[in-house]
Simulated assay, not measured.
Amino acid sequence: MRKWRSAVVTAAWVGVGTAAGALGAWQLATADGGGAAHSRPLDEAAVERALAATSASPRPTPTSATPSAPTKTASDRSTLRFTGGTATVECRPDGTVYLVSWSPADGFHIDDDVERGPAAVTRLEAEPSDDDERDDLPYEIRCGEGGEPRARVVADADD
């Protein structure tokens, strides 16, 4: 009698485990966009709508070539924001500048021939992904008074 009960309890546990696994597999297979974030990729229009819905302020349009003032970080590095992207920059005690890292903005890429320094002047170029509509934005970055980096658009050497 005792072996019979043990077999029934084991069979019940196996049945419950199998049912739970089957239910989980069914939920994954039938989940819609609300059930699984990875079930359907978003097209470009859906991404724009989602960004617009979550954004507290409108996205800046990359029409101005005027960089913003740098933001100091704890490691004595500054982050420059400019049309076409951002760059993390170090102004060194000897007056040279060094590009630690850079990242393109949406719709841009940074050209491969970055001159990162350390040097008196460093250079990088933000190129629009839609090459036919907007001009490339070559930047020179140097350290100004007080050790603050400054970026400015210069004439494009490729033109």
Rank of each mutant, 00 (worst) to 15 (best):
70 P>R: 08
97 V>L: 00
120 A>Y: 01
98 Y>D: 00
146 G>F: 02
89 V>T: 09
152 R>F: 10
139 Y>W: 05
67 P>S: 10
118 P>C: 02
94 D>E: 03
141 I>H: 07
15 G>D: 05
101 S>G: 08
68 S>W: 09
150 R>S: 03
7 A>T: 08
13 W>F: 08
55 S>P: 02
26 W>V: 08
57 S>F: 13
85 G>D: 00
121 V>S: 02
112 D>R: 10
77 R>L: 04
125 E>T: 15
95 G>V: 00
50 A>N: 11
48 E>A: 15
4 W>M: 11
12 A>S: 05
41 P>A: 12
140 E>M: 10
144 G>Y: 03
88 T>K: 12
91 C>T: 01
17 G>A: 09
25 A>E: 07
115 E>N: 09
81 R>L: 02
84 G>W: 01
44 E>L: 11
111 D>A: 06
69 A>H: 14
136 D>R: 13
3 K>T: 03
35 G>S: 10
103 S>M: 11
121 V>W: 00
88 T>A: 08
69 A>G: 02
140 E>S: 15
136 D>Y: 06
11 A>S: 14
150 R>A: 04
13 W>K: 12
107 G>L: 10
77 R>D: 03
56 A>Q: 09
126 A>L: 13
94 D>G: 02
90 E>T: 14
159 D>C: 13
72 K>Q: 07
127 E>W: 08
158 D>H: 11
16 V>Q: 02
25 A>M: 09
116 R>Q: 09
149 P>M: 09
